[in-house]
């Protein structure tokens, strides 16, 4: 997986340096399907609300780079992968159920512990 081969758009990047407790997220989709588009917009919304300033999102279109599917063990689409912080987490679906995405990304418990 070299950087050159990656054909993805970086939607938003707060900082080039990974933030200490920053979220490195990757969203895998296949083409511009309604599900893909819904997932992208849902993710953006959710990150802005809950992770403002400490996340990066990469969207990877597997129709363009199918070789990336095996590396991250992608089966279902769309799949959101939390690469950082460890451990690896996945959320599949169009991310319409915010509650479950938050649980899946361990954000809910984190914010819960803070408050």
């Amino acid at each position: 997986m070299s950087e050159k081969n990656r054909n993805h758009e970086i939607l938003e990047k707060v900082s080039d340096e990974p933030v200490a407790d920053g979220f490195d997220l990757r969203l895998y989709v296949a083409g511009q399907t309604p599900k893909s588009l819904a997932a992208i917009s849902n993710l953006k919304k959710l990150c802005e609300t809950h992770l403002a300033g400490r996340y990066t999102i990469e969207v990877i279109d597997l129709l363009v780079t199918p070789q990336l599917a095996a590396g991250d063990q992608i089966v279902a689409l769309p799949t959101l992968v939390r690469r950082l912080p460890e451990p690896l987490k996945r959320v599949i679906g169009d991310l319409s159920n915010t509650e479950r995405v938050l649980v899946g990304l361990d954000i809910r418990s984190k914010t819960g512990s803070r408050t």
Partner: peptide
């Protein structure tokens, strides 16, 4: 390590298999 949220399909599997 998988949470399901909303609609999904197995296109990822198709992509992988197709690529292979």
């Amino acid at each position: 390590e998988i949470e399901e949220s909303g609609e999904y399909d197995l296109e990822g599997l198709f992509v992988r298999l197709g690529h292979a």
